[in-house]
Write a protein that binds this DNA or RNA. Structure first.
Length: 731
RNA sequence: GCGCGGUUAGCUCAGUUGGUAGAGCAUCCCCUUGACGUGGGGAGGGUCACAGGUUCGAAUCCUGUAUCGCGCACCA
């Protein structure tokens, strides 16, 4: 090894004679950053590395679900947001990246229920209070784990400001919003048809429903003088209204409100004719019977005509006494038996076995959603959506990529009221009282109401909890201490909301609406949607497919810097990203390349002669090096433009290409001759250029590869240097 | 049905106001050179899905078609 360096005069640190060891370096460097306090913008100002009057730059980290460990998607989030944060910090902004954890109501409860299932237990046998405590313990245990993992990713977020969605101050703000919505008549409790999952025993908003194409049997049944059709004969017990279009000439002789008797599943009934324009004359026979309790369209018709509504199926999916001999049977088992009976009575006209239609299912367990009429809290969305629409159209909030704007506008224009009640224990309890007698509900933050204002009946606490998105949609202003906190004044509105495209309605649109509603300002100026991480074959990662990549496996194998480069390069916002270990390997080689470039550069100079910064009197560059410097400056300017326009994939690739194929392959190779040459001035000029270039490269790569660059920086012979994390971005 | 995307080298994808098609990986050939073999030099490989249109000029803009995704809404 020694003779290789015989011509270099300089002594280089021993560590450069060995390969870069990411494992031991990363934890050490992260500890160094944390001790420095530079993740905290206040500390940066205090230490004099950021100007007191500097402009602020804020990213609120999407609160991580505290119910498991990080997956590859989190790895991408942490990487992209850290790149933005480190870049802005180096540009001199008062930079805040605020981390948080989400109790993730339903999601966490589902995870915990699976755990219970494995232990042979079920949530329905556990006292709500105990269940809450168990899940809280589970969440806390996971939180510690997750925070360690976020650190592993190199996230330079301000841990001193970390928040949890169940923190007292957050809950207080969520409650205040609930009350304000009520005062502004934007909140109501209503007996409305909601989407109910019979397995999870809770209602959902329209977003938690997944449509699924199915081929099923479609039954044509005789209903008095009519033929009706249905895919769900098990709901038909209580059907006593037969509906047709008022303009349908085939049925012109029947009048609205006319009654007639007929033989039905369990005996003779009296039916009433209803005329409604919701009927599609071209579909089936143009006649249908309705089940208002279990179908949204039927519910609408019943509401318009003030018809009776009867529950047929209970919360567990079993038939109620109205089903007569079938009562107590699960609908799945009951269907063939009901058809059998109908056939024996001669009421089945025909069965179409290949009926294609869409079934609404629970997005989590795939169980068929059973619409039910329930008393729930709803937020009137139209007025909130209108303000959001205006703001988005005025470009006060910019979407990257752009097309998410159109998708959002479309959703907002067709928005329906938001059911925020969930029948699960894990969440923020709804601060309201419900009347035992008449089911009226009252917002009651101070626990004062004791009697129903309508009927005088006894009231008790609402047992439901908020939809977790109701609290997370208030996250940006809640975590900053709205309305009086200093942070709120300094850092709100935030600059960027960086998240996955799958949350565009669930979270982003609702944050905009509630942010505008509570603070009168947008919660963020830019929405940046990263793509979903897929496996090497381009398939979505899922636990059931077994192709989930744990980012920590990759970082421990290849180093965090390599992982970060792999998820950034080639990842344009909004498109999905296939991740393979091949790609990570390629960037591990790049880390090694940078390491060896340093080894060459440091061994090429005489350190004691080069401890000053560029621009120093002794650093006059000769023509060739001046030209190289100009090219380098052009590259950096280009990269800076990419950074400012959120084209990180491009910035990273350009730097990679420059460092490897320009600086290493050409400049370093050419340098060998110059450094060996007889001209002292040529040699000095080149040495100066190499050292300055390495300084520029390290600073430009730092947001992408923070660990290895910081580690190398610590050995750079530069006078008055600080930690690289707070050095200036090159210009 | 309505809406939003994609279709570029074997694979994964870039291509920033229209100006001779790019990268990484893979393949093939050559090379122990003061750092790095986790390296260096070089090569092959694309009618930019298809058809029209605008233009001096189109991967890029417009129209249509095909095809693959995704989202939303639904008819009993």
């Amino acid at each position: 090894m020694e003779d290789k360096f015989k011509k270099g005069e300089a002594q280089i640190p021993d560590k450069f004679l060995k390969p870069y060891d990411a494992q031991t370096t990363e934890d050490r460097i992260y500890a160094l950053w944390e001790e420095s306090g530079f993740f905290n913008p206040d500390r940066c100002v205090k230490e004099g590395v950021i100007a007191k009057d500097a402009e602020s730059f804020t990213i609120i980290m999407p609160p991580t679900n505290a119910n498991g460990s990080l997956h590859a998607g989190h790895g991408l989030v942490m990487t992209v947001e850290d790149i933005m944060t480190r870049y802005k910090r180096m540009r001199g902004y008062k930079t805040l990246w605020l981390p948080g954890l989400d109790h993730a109501g339903f999601e966490t409860q589902v995870v915990y229920e699976k755990k219970l299932e494995k232990e042979g237990r079920t949530r329905f046998e556990i006292e709500p209070k105990q269940l809450y405590q168990e899940i809280m313990d589970f969440t806390k245990a996971n939180s510690t784990n997750i925070k360690t993992q976020v650190r592993k990713m190199g996230a330079s977020c301000d841990w001193s400001r970390e928040k949890f969605t169940l923190d007292d101050d957050i809950v207080k703000i969520v409650y205040a919003t609930f009350q304000k919505l009520s005062e502004d008549d934007l909140l109501y409790r209503g007996k409305r048809i909601v989407s109910w999952c019979p397995k999870h025993q809770t209602s959902f908003s329209d977003l938690e429903i997944k449509d699924e194409d199915r081929v099923e049997e479609f039954y044509y049944l005789k209903y008095g003088p009519f033929t009706i059709s249905t895919s769900r004969p098990e709901t038909k017990f209580g059907d006593k209204y037969v509906v047709m279009h008022p303009d349908d000439e085939r049925y012109a002789k029947y009048k609205d409100g006319e009654k007639f008797d007929l033989e039905w599943i369990n005996g003779p009934i009296t039916a009433t004719i209803v005329k409604d324009t919701a009927i599609d004359m071209a579909f089936g026979t143009g006649v249908m019977t309705i089940t208002p309790w279990h179908d949204p369209v039927d519910f609408g018709i019943a509401e318009r005509h003030h018809l009776d509504k009867e529950q047929i199926i209970d919360e567990r999916g079993k038939l109620l006494p109205i089903a007569g001999e079938f009562a107590g049977l699960h609908i799945k088992k009951a269907r063939p038996l009901i058809i059998e009976k109908l056939q024996s009575k001669g009421l089945v006209e025909k069965i179409d076995a290949n009926y294609k239609h869409v079934v609404r299912t629970c997005y989590k367990c795939g169980t068929i959603i059973e619409p039910q009429i329930l008393n729930q809290w709803f937020v009137r969305m139209k007025p909130l959506a209108e303000k959001a629409l205006a703001i988005i159209k005025s470009q006060e909030i910019v979407y990257i990529p752009e097309h998410y704007e159109k998708i959002t506008l479309h959703w907002l224009e067709n928005i329906i009221d938001w059911n925020i009640s969930r029948q699960i224990v894990w969440g923020i309890p709804i601060p309201a009282k419900i009347c035992h007698e008449c089911e009226a509900g009252y917002v009651d933050l101070e626990d004062k109401i004791t009697k129903c204002k309508k009927c005088g009946g006894v009231v008790e606490k609402d047992k439901d909890t908020f939809d977790t998105w109701f609290s997370s949609s208030q996250w940006p202003y809640a975590v900053l201490g709205f309305p009086d906190g200093d942070d709120f004044k300094t850092f709100y509105p935030t600059d960027i909301m960086e998240t996955g495209g799958d949350l565009v309605f669930f979270w982003v649109a609702r944050m905009i609406m509630l942010g505008l509603y509570r603070t009168g300002k947008v919660p963020f100026k830019t929405v940046y949607m990263h793509g979903l991480v897929q496996d090497a074959k381009g398939q979505k990662m899922s636990k059931s497919k077994g192709n989930v990549i744990n980012p920590l496996d990759l970082t421990s194998q290849f180093g965090t810097d390599a992982f970060r480069m792999a998820v950034v390069v080639g990842n344009t916002p909004g498109t999905s990203l296939p991740l393979s270990s091949n790609k990570v390997t390629a960037y591990k080689k790049f880390v090694n390349k940078l390491w060896n470039i340093t080894r060459f550069v440091l061994s090429s100079i005489d350190a004691k002669d080069f401890t000053t910064r560029s621009g120093d009197a002794s650093s006059t560059l000769l023509g060739v090096d001046e030209k190289l410097l100009a090219e380098q400056k052009a590259l950096i300017a280009d990269v800076t433009k990419d950074m400012d326009n959120y084209r990180f994939y491009m910035a990273a690739e350009k730097l990679y290409h420059y460092v490897w194929h320009e600086f290493a392959d050409k400049i370093l190779e050419d340098s060998k001759a110059i450094l060996n040459g007889s001209s002292e001035t040529d040699r000095r000029s080149r040495q100066r250029f190499l050292l300055d270039s390495l300084s520029v490269i390290l600073r430009a790569l730092h947001p992408f590869m923070p660990f290895v660059t910081e580690e190398i920086w610590s050995d750079m012979p530069i006078a008055g240097k600080k930690l690289l994390i707070v050095e200036k971005w090159p210009e």
